[in-house]
């Protein structure tokens, strides 16, 4: 009995340690965002301090405001999400439900495009966009974001479309609905949940993207993940401001992540469980 209790205590402390290890870095940077510059620099690190919103005030309304960066991030993410969904919903429906010529290959193609290393795409993309003058434009960055958001969205949506019974569409055909009408009136309303989950993940991935943004950003397109670097330089680091910017960059994705928490495993593993077209 005693050994049992000892084991339990051991297990609890090990799992507690893991929990701490995951929470702490995030918690710590959030905490530093509420500190004054002196409190951040205090050594040993201070857990107790008088909180202040000065850092947030500075990064939002100060001379180096990141509000334009946040706006930029939102434009990129929302734009990517809209374009992705408009293209992915019909394609996913066709792959999941219809007799498509070369269906297996289409499915495999969508899957394979997900494996391309981004570094391999960004080099030609940079050259092409430079030639047509689309560097540092929203259309340029949204277009290239389709390279990862579109295959992902198609595969996630296919899994939701496949869950619907075929008889639903057949009933609609017999009731006199055209294929397009059936998709719009019968199928889409029933996969609303799946569409919402897909929107969350596409937004999240677009918000977090970094490599393409580094190469294609400029004065117009300057997402918040890039703007962090304004606060770190060889000469000095603006600690509390950096913490505040990180906090603002984390906030939307953490909120979305918690909203979509039940679907997160599905969103993370989509396309890996089954590969290739079916039916």
């Amino acid at each position: 009995m005693k050994g049992h209790k000892l084991r339990l205590a051991l297990l609890l402390s090990v799992s507690g340690l893991f929990l701490l290890a995951w929470i702490f870095p995030i918690f710590w940077s959030l905490l530093n965002a509420f500190k004054s510059e002196q409190d951040v620099l205090a050594y040993p690190p201070k857990l107790i301090f008088s909180p202040t919103l000065a850092a947030f005030r500075d990064v939002l309304f100060g001379p180096t405001s990141i509000v334009p960066n946040l706006v930029s991030s939102f434009i990129i993410s929302i734009g990517t999400t809209i374009v992705t969904m408009v293209l992915a919903i019909p394609a996913a429906y066709a792959l999941a439900r219809l007799r498509v010529p070369g269906k297996k290959w289409s499915g495999f193609y969508v899957l394979a495009t997900q494996m391309l290393p981004p570094v391999g795409i960004i080099i030609p993309y940079f050259l092409i966009l430079r030639d047509i003058g689309w560097i540092d434009t929203y259309q340029g960055i949204i277009l290239i974001y389709l390279s990862f958001s579109l295959p992902f969205a198609i595969w996630l949506l296919v899994s939701y479309f496949e869950d619907l019974p075929f008889e639903m569409e057949e009933a609609a055909f017999i009731d006199g609905a055209s294929r397009l009408m059936t998709l719009w009136r019968i199928i889409l309303p029933q996969v609303r949940g799946g569409v919402a989950v897909t929107v969350v993940f596409v937004f999240l991935n677009a918000w977090n993207e970094f490599l393409f943004a580094v190469v294609l950003s400029g004065n117009v397109v300057r997402p918040v993940t890039i703007s962090m670097f304004n606060f770190v330089s060889v000469e000095q680091t603006l600690w509390s401001k950096l913490a505040a910017v990180s906090a603002l960059a984390m906030l939307p994705v953490i909120i979305l992540g918690i909203i979509a928490q039940k679907h997160i495993v599905k969103g993370l593993t989509v396309g890996a469980v089954k590969g290739g077209g079916r039916r």
Binding site: P165, E170, A171, I174, D175, A177, I186
Partner: peptide, 27 residues
């Protein structure tokens, strides 16, 4: 199917779950 002027009852009924009974019948 939609050009044939027929009606069908499916084994699973295939009711449209997001519509009310009235909307189902009206479809």
């Amino acid at each position: 199917a939609r050009a044939r002027d027929i009606a069908m009852v499916f084994q699973s009924y295939a009711l449209y779950p997001h519509m009310t009974v009235a909307e189902n019948i009206a479809f």
